[in-house]
């Protein structure tokens, strides 16, 4: 794998978590893709920001009939997926702030394994630039 070219992948998430299968599918693709050692970023825009809302209660017993996958976002750091960008305008228009989101963290191997936040709240110019820098953009 050493000499393989590392490509930049951006996963764009724009759907709320339970009404459709998009959010879960995206998360599964991200985790599977994480095995390939690519440069992975996640963007959450529009209703996609609801995927990161903390305190979701979706256990199998809660009766909503969906896998309890909100906790799985907390494992992203273990999978070295630690560049998570949230569109500020989407949070604003939904009355949400960074405090409403799950605390997604990773351990920085280059900084004595210090725990750092994976989430950046960004404006649309920063996100547009991020999109431009990608080799592959996958939308969900």
């Amino acid at each position: 794998m050493e000499d393989e070219v590392i490509k930049k992948f951006l996963y764009v998430n724009r759907k709320a978590p339970y009404g459709t299968i998009y959010a879960l599918e995206s998360l599964e693709v991200v985790l599977i893709g994480a095995a390939f050692d690519q440069d992975v970023s996640l963007a959450f825009i529009d209703d996609g920001v609801y995927q990161l809302k903390k305190d979701q209660k979706t256990s199998v017993d809660s009766g909503i009939g969906m896998k309890d996958f909100s906790k799985t976002y907390l494992a992203l750091g273990d999978y070295d997926v630690n560049k998570i960008y949230v569109d500020k305008a989407s949070l604003d228009e939904r009355g949400l702030t960074a405090d409403d989101l799950m605390e997604l963290v990773y351990e920085d191997e280059d900084d004595d394994y210090k725990e750092k936040s994976s989430i950046s709240i960004v404006n649309q110019d920063e996100l547009a630039l991020l999109m431009e820098q990608q080799d592959v953009v996958l939308s969900f």
Binding site: F69, T72, L74, A75
Partner: peptide, 10 residues
């Protein structure tokens, strides 16, 4: 904790 079975390297 995470509702996921970790990949081997994880």
């Amino acid at each position: 904790e995470y509702q996921i079975a970790p990949a081997v390297r994880v």
